[in-house]
Amino acid sequence: MFELRLVQGSLLKKVLESIKDLVNDANFDCSSTGFSLQAMDSSHVALVALLLRSEGFEHYRCDRNLTMGMNLANMAKMLKCAGNDDIITIKADDGTDTVTFMFESPSQDKISDFEMKLMDIDSEHLGIPEAEYEAIIRMPSAEFARICRDLSSIGDTVVISVTKEGVRFSARGDIGAANIVCRQNATVDKPEDATIIEMQEPVTLTFALRYMNSFTKATPLAEQVTISMSSDLPVVVEYKVAGMGYIRYYLAPKIEE
């Protein structure tokens, strides 16, 4: 028997909106530590890793480890039927091939049950080591989303360059070129407006903007985004899920042939 109950159901709605465009079908892994997912996009150059820890749920029961294969577009369709203030319960009985989503209105006067068939998805799982990064940028997530959106109107790749001056986002295309430089700015009243750059080494990497724009779908989840970079390694773009865990996106850099 697996059951989780999340009072702030809107978090789960936002999580699905954050991943459904990047990945079609994915396995949710349920264990005593929490509700997690790791999945790659169809070209296998981008990966999303989700972790929602069990202690973050109002109620969490997982009798034995369970993998639930779901079509994320269908799951998102069902979660769209939940109100932003609804309590969301997900449950699956052992040995059944369906999962139930239950939505309770705050005043408990409306209870909805949505049942979805599970799928068998064989996806390879990657071991991602916790690494030290040459540069880590923490900045307002809305700012990062705005930069990715603006630069994608200029070109299809972004060069992200971290130096002691700050972080520079550059793009070029048929109509011209653009450079956006963000400097370290820790002296702001609200911490979520700060831009903090930890740089061990200057690092410059090139990425496809369409993936970066897909990652920024997670912006509603967190005020800040963390971008971790090391030369010739995939970038990690991380959004915290308030008090529960995180969504981490990994993207392979574009390497000069």
Binding site: S43, K254, E257
Partner: peptide, 14 residues
């Protein structure tokens, strides 16, 4: 020309 290599070249398949 720039290429992106699949992530399994960077991370080990478990």
């Amino acid at each position: 020309k720039r290429t992106q290599f699949p992530l399994k070249l960077y991370f080990v398949v478990t």
